Amino acid sequence: MAKSKSVEREARRPEINLPELRTYEGQGLEPDGDYDGLRFEDLDLGGEDGAGATFLDCGIYRCALGETALGRARMLDSVLEGVSGVGTRMENCELRDVELRDARLGGTQMHGARLNRVLVRGGKIDFLNLRQAKLTDVTFEGCVLVEPDFGGARLERVTFRDCVLRRAELHQAQLKDVDLRGVTELDIATGLDRLAGAVISPDQLMELAPAFAAQIGVRVEG
Rank of each mutant, 00 (worst) to 15 (best):
Lys3Pro: 00
Val7Gln: 05
Glu8Gly: 00
Arg13Tyr: 09
Ile16Lys: 06
Leu18Met: 02
Arg22Met: 05
Tyr24Ser: 02
Glu30Arg: 14
Tyr35Ile: 01
Gly37Arg: 10
Leu45Asn: 06
Gly50Arg: 10
Gly52His: 03
Thr54Lys: 15
Thr54Ile: 04
Phe55Met: 14
Phe55Asp: 07
Leu56Glu: 10
Cys58Ile: 05
Tyr61Leu: 15
Cys63Pro: 07
Leu65Ile: 12
Leu65Gly: 11
Gly71Gln: 12
Met75Thr: 01
Asp77Val: 00
Ser78Cys: 14
Val79Ser: 03
Glu81Asp: 07
Gly85Met: 13
Thr88Gln: 12
Asn92Trp: 01
Glu94Cys: 03
Arg96His: 03
Asp97Val: 00
Asp97Gly: 02
Glu99Leu: 05
Arg104Lys: 10
Leu105Phe: 07
His111Asn: 11
Gly112Ser: 04
Arg117Gln: 11
Gly123Asp: 07
Lys124Pro: 01
Lys124Ile: 10
Leu128Trp: 15
Asn129Gly: 06
Ala133Val: 03
Ala133Arg: 11
Lys134Pro: 00
Thr136Leu: 14
Thr136Val: 08
Asp137Tyr: 03
Phe140Ile: 15
Val146His: 09
Pro148Ala: 01
Gly151Tyr: 03
Glu156Arg: 06
Glu156Ala: 01
Cys163Val: 08
Leu165Asn: 04
Arg167Gln: 14
Gly182Arg: 12
Val183Lys: 11
Val183Thr: 11
Glu185Tyr: 13
Ala189His: 10
Asp193Lys: 08
Leu195Asp: 02
Ile200Gly: 02
Ile200Arg: 02
Gln204Lys: 03
Gln204Val: 07
Met206Thr: 12
Ala211Gln: 15
Ala214Asn: 11
Gln215Lys: 04
Val218Ala: 04
Arg219Gly: 04
